[in-house]
Amino acid sequence: MNSSTHTATGEDPTQAEAGHSLWQDAWYRLRHNRAAMVSCVILTAIFVLCFIVPIFPLIDDPAAIELSEKNKGPSASHWMGQDQLGRDLLARILHGGRISILVGLITTAVSLTIGVAVGSIAGYASGRIDALLMRAVDVLYSLPFLIIVILFSAVARGQTDALTAWLADNTPLQYDAIAPFTGLLPLFIAIGALSWLNISRIVRASVQNISNQQYVEAARSLGLSHTRILLRHIIPNAIGPIVVYATLTIPSVMLFEATLSFLGIGVQPPHSSWGILIKDGAERLLSNPLLLLFPSTFFTLTLLSLNFLGDGLRDALDPKSSKD
């Protein structure tokens, strides 16, 4: 044993430093991806603008109507001009951005939770449970997504109105402050509950793959329970594709919210979202193109940044597929 200790000491003297996790390696690769880092900066800027700036009295009330000033171009007091009712466009964009981003984040969180749970159980359990869950997914896939969402939000409207009123009565929250969010609850639930299908398939595939790895077998040979193996050894290893898919889901959900708002079943006036602003702008394209230009710029920038970030994350977390 002594002889082996000696040779072993000579093996890798430099490596005895503190450990680098694979996450740190991925972060290093991400930092060197220029497009992803620029996207990060843009996203942070948009996030600050939408969520932090409106807290301070720096911008106008998005609902303040000045009919005499309608459709005016940019000026010192209204940087992005005023809309068809004389409301400050910048204020509307920032407040609308809050809703659009929240829709993206919350529904993605909902669909991630369901998708990861279903996918990992199906992938790990395999056999009959797997078949059952995946056929359920197949059935849900074949449902007309849009119609379900429209029906569900129509049916649930009464309940959400009641919830909004109850919250306003029983908590210190103001009715106007929470109405735009509670009104969207049916949307969150409907989109979230139907968009987990892709995630569950992705998670199932990678969990199946990881379950065959020898370290899972080793974990079983050490007497670990199924729950522990799944939560500690399998899901952390599957998280790469999940993170990537999540960043790519957020923009698609935001797009979907825009579609629904465009169709008139998303956010209700006087509240706005980027989808509504774009719809309003599109209706007045000839009289005032700025009404379309500014909201769509914000929207496009956010979507592009999220896509670039997702791409960068994919390269960072899966070094085999990236070029460097």
Binding site: Q214, S221, G223, P236
Partner: peptide, 24 residues
């Protein structure tokens, strides 16, 4: 499970894949 890893343990063929890469 109360035998595995406690009274009977196992070493596997390929050490490169038998440790979880994400855990210390």
């Amino acid at each position: 499970n109360s035998y595995r890893g406690a009274k009977i343990s196992m070493i596997f063929q390929d050490p490169m894949t038998s440790l979880n890469p994400y855990l210390k």
